[in-house]
Design a protein around this nucleic acid. Structure first.
Lengths: 240, 240
DNA sequence: CCGGCTCCATCTGTCGACAGTTCCTGCTTA
DNA sequence: TAAGCAGGAACTGTCGACAGATGGAGCCGG
């Protein structure tokens, strides 16, 4: 009956979802809606509108909104309502700076804590990434983005640090998806693959220092790519 | 009448507090109550009881609880209620590991971004710490703890990274206060003062690398002190 | 023609009440 | 006597409704 009664172990894949309570479901639905772009960045969130749209009352909806506020996906001002967060280049740079530190830490910890099975799974993940890159078809970049995220997700899990896992997987990665748009071309992904292989190699060698360094350089490389590609994304979009 | 009617500019210092809305007030009150120990770690939270205690309805209270859940100060399970988070030595170690990375990053960024005035203020903070240490009186460790936190708080602010500031000041530092108990003696605080002076020196020299390293060593040193002092606090773990 | 004021529609914040579930208590029965 | 079951009390989850506040439309005066 109880689904997450376990105390200290973290299931590597199973995300919490469909927990039964409406507020929980709404929280996940709204998170996806924001990250998918269904709720436009900067747009105002009307509680009655959303309540009708999802067929629920305003009570659970407001509870979900308060959680989204803590996740920095929406901004609430008293008596003015909530707005979807507006991504800025400065915030993106800040996210990558923090990510470089945290993912480097995760890779360093993973180098000593990862099991052989997990390393094998990670290697398979990289190979899948590679094969997907060979049979490239435009319009599939969505699946590729997931393969990339899966790589980082597995390393975060292998750090065995619940707080670090939470910060990376549940806070930084979602925020990054706000910026993940049409800036994935083949050259960049090939570059990312090479860097992933380097990190994997360091993990196979159980070399914490090298794992941290290769991961940090990978994030830094991704930052320059992302910020450069973001140059033309000045959205003139706004509504009040 | 309108308190924060401005639209696009964010006030650099003013923290949200006493916003008028009950859910917001409750969120801060409950945060303080948990961190102060008024709500015992691991204890169950009864919504009707808390609602009566603060003289509000369950609606705003539940909204505040959902925010606390995202801050990892309480744990909620569906249809079972909420419990104040139970600190564990493993979690403490994880917090310090993350903190070492993030505060090192903050110190590195602060070395180049901090203004001269901010450095002066930080130096004054360290001197105040020093003078308080000289006129030591037992029972005042609470004020000293604030002085220490103020030091790290200022450096975090000087990183100019909103996400980093949020993670450190609003997530990690509160979590740390859960463990801050009666383990502050004079020798340890003297040691901390010396380390603070080293970090300050690196910042005065505008040396990012040295600032990061001294801060990381300071956190690591604090970790060993804290975890050692925590040896006897093995609370009999159970619930449910 | 434009600036300011008034009134109103809408929304957010808050409350009380109802339904479903869980846990505890007490009784029944082997 | 102990295990199992039924009943009820209390709590969580959810909903609809009311009060205060905000923003805008429209009117009036300069």
């Amino acid at each position: 009956m109880v689904r997450k009664a376990l105390g200290g172990q973290v299931t590597p894949e199973a995300d919490e979802d469909a927990t039964g309570t409406l507020a929980e479901q709404l929280f996940h639905m709204l998170t996806e809606a924001i990250l998918q772009g269904e709720l436009a960045p900067g747009s105002k969130i009307s509680e009655p509108m959303l309540a009708q749209r999802y067929g629920v009352s305003r009570g659970p909806l407001r509870e979900a909104l308060h959680r989204l506020q803590e996740r920095r996906l929406i901004v609430r001002t008293a008596n003015h309502g909530a707005r979807v967060v507006q991504p800025t280049p400065e915030m993106l740079a800040g996210i990558f700076t923090v990510r470089e530190a945290l993912e480097g830490l995760a890779a360093r910890e993973a180098a000593t804590r990862m099991t052989d099975d997990e390393i094998s799974a990670l290697a398979a993940c990289v190979r899948r990434h590679e094969s997907e890159l060979q049979e490239w078809v435009d319009g599939r970049h969505n699946a590729l983005g997931k393969a990339d995220e899966d790589f980082h997700f597995r390393i975060a899990q292998a750090s065995r640090n619940p707080l670090l896992i939470e910060l990376l997987c549940h806070q930084l990665y979602p925020l990054l998806r706000l910026y993940r748009s049409r800036n994935d071309n083949r050259t960049l992904r090939q570059r990312a693959l090479v860097e992933h292989q380097r990190v994997l190699g360091a993990l196979v060698d159980r070399d914490p220092q090298l794992a941290e360094l290769t991961m940090q350089r990978h994030i830094a490389s991704a930052r320059t790519r992302r910020t450069l590609a973001l140059g033309a994304s000045v959205t003139s979009e706004d509504d009040r």
